[in-house]
Structures are given as structure tokens and as C-alpha cells.
């Protein structure tokens, strides 16, 4: 099995060495063919050089596209180079590479899920985010349930595994800013099988979230509209001829 771990990174030179080293340790422990691709999203620091010196592949975007554009380019690389699946893991150290095994393990379910989301809300351990963020998460959960008929507990989690059908779908379309809940709506509209596995997360090791202050209400408004519109727009999108 060939797996590409996609690490979107914007000015993450401080956190990256530990993140890449953790993934490489996990590769040795699991004995799976895991490659690491750091997507440098137009960083102004030495993110690319640091990632390269750590032994990762580096996809360098010449301008900042935001998290969605960065993730999509990694997924495109995985699809074009024939990887069996891709795993999205944040470059700020929030997602422990040791949890990758849980995402890969979920592929053995029958039928195999196309998109597996690591959720921090199914266990009592680990970092669970602030109360305000959890409130926002609850709203998105209800929204996805009502609009897309999708039951997920952690719609904003960026720790995900994309199977082949998900790679094909997101090669065609992927939301650009604050993409996680919207991507779930698109997956549901395109009839992908979405599953969740409990994982532990940490607080970010370096840097700060882009969703704070005045960006928070904008995020909620934009995401709410985007989830509804993306679901409607993608209902007719066919993946392997299974679209409506």
C-alpha cells in the first residue's frame, strides 16, 4: 500500500522538523510505503528549505492559496502518481503521526470508506479545542446533518484520509478557504462513504489559528452558506457513475 501524507504548511519552519520526523518514524514502525509531501503555501520564512532538509517532498506554491488550495495540490499529486490513498495532516503539529495507523486501520471496514475523518470528540483524552470553537462545531454538525444527511462529530477536523474515489472527486473540485466542513458536504453530495475514527490531537505547537477575532463570525457565515451551496451544486456530480 502506498500512502502520501500531505502536510499543508504556511510559515511552519519551527514545527515542521518534528512533524516530518514523527511521520518518518511511523513509516518505519508500520512498515508501509509512506511518503511525505509538504505543501509550502507561499511561506515567507524557510518552510520549503526546512521541509526539504528533513527529507520530505516539497510542493512549493508561488503564492498563498489558503489551506484548501494547498491541500488540493497534495491530493492531485497523490492521484496522478498512483498512491492508494492520501492523508492530510496539519503542519503545525496538532495531529500526532502516531494516529495515522487508526485512519489506515479504518480502511479495512466493509465497504471501505472513501473519506475517513479523525475526530477528537469521541474520546475524553487529548486536546478538545475551546468552548467557542466547540459551539461552532456543534452548529456545523447540525448543519451537515440537516443539509447533507451526514453524521460527523468533528466537521472541522483537518486530520483526514482520502481514498481513491475521494482523490478523484477532490481533483475536480475542492473548496479553498475554511474547506473542511464544505468538503464533507461535497463528499456527501457525490455519494462518497464517509467514516469517522476517534483520534487524539494536541494543541498547535507553533503559530496561531487563522480563525480568531473578526474572522470567526465571517468563518461561520461563509461556511454555513458554502455548505448549503456546495451540497446543492455537487448533488449531480458523478463519481464512478454513482452520482444522481
Amino acid at each position: 500500500m502506498r500512502v502520501l501524507v500531505v502536510v499543508p504548511a504556511f510559515n511552519e519552519q519551527a514545527a515542521l522538523p518534528a512533524v516530518v520526523a514523527e511521520i518518518r518514524n511511523e513509516r518505519q514502525r508500520l512498515g508501509i510505503d509512506i511518503d511525505v509531501a509538504v505543501v509550502d503555501d507561499g511561506s515567507t520564512d524557510h518552510t520549503s528549505e526546512v521541509a526539504y532538509s528533513c527529507g520530505a517532498r516539497v510542493l512549493r506554491l508561488c503564492r498563498n492559496l489558503g489551506i484548501g488550495g494547498a491541500v488540493q495540490v497534495g491530493l492531485r499529486a497523490a492521484l496522478r502518481e498512483g498512491y492508494d490513498c492520501a492523508i492530510q495532516l496539519d503542519g503545525d503539529g496538532q495531529h500526532p503521526a502516531s494516529e495515522i495507523t487508526k485512519l489506515i486501520g479504518a480502511l479495512s471496514q466493509s465497504p471501505a470508506p472513501d473519506l475517513i475523518v479523525g475526530t477528537r470528540y469521541r474520546t475524553r483524552d487529548g486536546f478538545r479545542s475551546t468552548a467557542l470553537r466547540r459551539l461552532g462545531g456543534t452548529w456545523l454538525r447540525v448543519l451537515l446533518r440537516v443539509v447533507a444527511g451526514l453524521r460527523v462529530t468533528d466537521p472541522t477536523s483537518g486530520f483526514r484520509l482520502y481514498g481513491h474515489r475521494a482523490l478523484k472527486l477532490f481533483d475536480q473540485t475542492y473548496p479553498y478557504d475554511y474547506p473542511e466542513p464544505e468538503a464533507l458536504a461535497i463528499a456527501s453530495a457525490a455519494h462518497l462513504r464517509v467514516a469517522e475514527v476517534p483520534v487524539q490531537m494536541r494543541e498547535r505547537q507553533h503559530g496561531r489559528s487563522s480563525i480568531s477575532g473578526i474572522a470567526a463570525p465571517y468563518y461561520m457565515l461563509k461556511t454555513t452558506l458554502a455548505v448549503v451551496l456546495s451540497y446543492v451544486r455537487n448533488r449531480r456530480r458523478a463519481v464512478d457513475g454513482e452520482g444522481k
Binding site: L59, R60, L61, C62, Q72, V73, R80
Partner: peptide, 10 residues
Amino acid sequence: LTQELALLQE
């Protein structure tokens, strides 16, 4: 184009 450029550059 930005994405394709990154893939080609790599």
C-alpha cells in the same frame, strides 16, 4: 496554474 506550477516544479 499555481498548483500546476508547484507540481511541475517538484
